[in-house]
Design a protein around this nucleic acid. Sequence first.
DNA 1: GTGAAAGCGCTAACAT
DNA 2: ATGTTAGCGCTTTCAC
Lengths: 340, 340
Amino acid sequence: MGVTIDDIASAAGVSTATISRVLNNSERVSPATRKRIEAIIKEQGYKPNIFARGLKHSQTGVVGIIVSLITNPYMTSIVESIEGTLAKNDAFIYLCNSNNDEELEHRYIEELLRRKVEALIVVESPGFNAASSFYDGLKADCPVILVNEHLHRDPRHHVVCCAQEPGLMEALNYFLARRLFPIAMILGDEGNYSCTVKERLFAEFCSGAGLGPGAAQVHRVGDANVEGVVTNAAELMSRLARSPDRPRAILAYNDMVGVGVLQGAQAAGLRVPDDIAVISVDNTLLSRISVPQLSTVDLRTADLGRMAAELYLRIRSGYIPAREASREEISSRLVLRATS
Amino acid sequence: MGVTIDDIASAAGVSTATISRVLNNSERVSPATRKRIEAIIKEQGYKPNIFARGLKHSQTGVVGIIVSLITNPYMTSIVESIEGTLAKNDAFIYLCNSNNDEELEHRYIEELLRRKVEALIVVESPGFNAASSFYDGLKADCPVILVNEHLHRDPRHHVVCCAQEPGLMEALNYFLARRLFPIAMILGDEGNYSCTVKERLFAEFCSGAGLGPGAAQVHRVGDANVEGVVTNAAELMSRLARSPDRPRAILAYNDMVGVGVLQGAQAAGLRVPDDIAVISVDNTLLSRISVPQLSTVDLRTADLGRMAAELYLRIRSGYIPAREASREEISSRLVLRATS
DNA sequence: GTGAAAGCGCTAACAT
DNA sequence: ATGTTAGCGCTTTCAC
C-alpha cells in the first residue's frame, strides 16, 4: 500500500502522535516541526488512510446526498453544484435516489449514518412535501442540511432554500406593467407547498392590483412533476387559445408545463410572445432548450447546491456549530428570455 | 456505538473468528452454529463496521461512478439505473462528475482507488471520445467497467455498451419503406465516435438502397451536446423547409437536435409527421416531453446502467473473474412515437 | 512540545 | 470446526 503515518514519522524523526497532531492541525506543535513535517508529507505524497480514520470515528470526507428523483433536471442541477463544490475540497458524495419513497429514504439515512458521513444533505423537490416531521425527529450525529425545506419555519436542522415569491411577483408585475390581461396561472396538483404558494400569491397579487375574474384565471393540469404534464399543458393551452377570454399572459407552474404551453400555443397558431407571453418557473435545462427559450423564474439551483456544500464546509472548519439549526434563504428572480 | 462483533461472539458463546467466518460466508462453519449466529446477528441488528473492514483491505460496499456530465439526461438515466440496482444490493456509490476534464477524471480515479471502491464504473457520453488509452494503462485493483466504450474492440477492461447501428438501420428502413425522400441526416460536430458511426452507416444505407444525392442529404449543426444546438437545429430546419429539395424525413443526431428540428418544422408551418417525419437518437426525457413526442432510437440507458451494476454484482459474488476483460453489447432499437 | 502505548472493529494466519 | 492472536493505520489519553 501507500505511505503510512509511520513512514512520515520515521522520516521526520518524530513519533506518529506528532504527525497526527499536524494532520488534525489541532494542539500545540512547534511551528518548526510542523513546517518540517508538512514538507515531508507533501514530498512523499502521504495521505492518511480513510478507514483508519473512520475507525476512530473521525473524518471520513464523505457527505451523503439524498435526492427524491435524480432524473429530474432540477435535482440534477443541484447535485452537480454540490458535487462540484465538494470535489474542490476533497470531499466525496454518496448519492442516494429515494424516488420519493419514504421508507427507502429512511433506510438510506440509517446506512449513511452508519458509514459516518460528515453531513447529510437532503434535496427536496420544490413541488413535494417531505415528511419533515421525520427529519425533526432525526437524531443524527452529523449536521443535516435540508435543501428546499419550506414547510417549517423552525426546523431542527440546517435549511437552505430559495423563496419563490420574489420571482413570481416580478413575473406578475411584468405582465401587469404591460397590461397583458387576462393573466392565467397554470398550476399542478393541489396540496403541495409549491402549488399553495403560487395560488396564494396569485390571489394576493390580483386583489392588490384590483384584477377581477375577467383579468385573472387559474387552471390545473394534474401532477406537474410527471412527464405527461407536457401533453396536458399543451392540450389545455389549445383549449384556452380558442376560448373567448383567451389569456394574454401565462405563468406556468414549472418548466415542463411551460414547454407544454409553448407547444399548445404554437399548435393553435399563436405567436409567442406577441399574441401570448409565457413565463414558467424553475430555470432548468428545459427552459433553455425550448424554442423560443422560456422566460422563467430562476429557482437558482446552482446557488442552492453551492450554499449547501459550503455550509457543510464551514461546519467542518468549525466556523459554524454543527448541531444548531440555521436558515439561509435566497430569492428567486425573473429571467427574461424570448417568451415574454 | 452500535453492536460489535464481540457482542455477537459473546452472545453466541463463540469467538470473533467464527462470527467473522459466517459473515464472510467462507470456510467451514458447522451449519448449526452458523444458523445460531445468523439468528443472533439478525436479532441484534448487527452490521459489521465498514471502516474496520476497509482497514483490512476487504469489502467496502462502495462503487465509484464517473460520469462526464451529470446534467445530461442521457447520463442521469444511466446513473439512476446503476444506483437503483446497487441500492437493492446494499452497495453505495460515490458519484463523480468529470465535466469532460481528463485531468480531473484522473484525480477522481486515484482518490476512488484510495477509498477502495469495489468497482469503478466509467460512463462515457456516446458523443465523446474518452482517453481510452488512459484506461488501457490503468492498473486498478478493482474491476473497471466502461459504459459505452466503443472505440477499442479489445480494451483491457469490462465494457458494457449499446450499438447504435441496429436502431439507426431500423429508422432508415422505416423511411425507405414509406419512400419518404429525401432523407436528411443531421449530425453534430465531426470527429467523435457517435458522429462517425452515423455518417458511415448512412452512407452504406444510401448506397445499399440505391439512394442518390437527390434522395439523401447530410447536414451539420455544430456541437450537439451543448444546449445551443437546439436553436441551431431549429434554424437549420427552417432553412430546409424553404429549400427546393426539402426533406420528407429527418434522422437527428440526438434528442436535442430532434427537439430543435421539431420546433423549426412547426415554425415553418410543416406538419409533423405528415409533411415531414422526424426520428432522433437517445430516448432521453427530451424525446418524451416534446410535443409531439419524438420517435427515437432507444440507446437503452436503463438497461446499460443495470447491466453495469449487475456485472459488478456478479464479480463480487465470484461468478466472474474480476480482472478479465469482458464485453456485453446490446442493440439499440427504434421507438415509434408521434413524429414518424 | 513531544513520545509511548492502548485501542477502534475486524480479518486471517496459525493453533488446536 | 472453532479459538487465539497479531495486526490494519490512525487518534488520543497520559506521561514526560
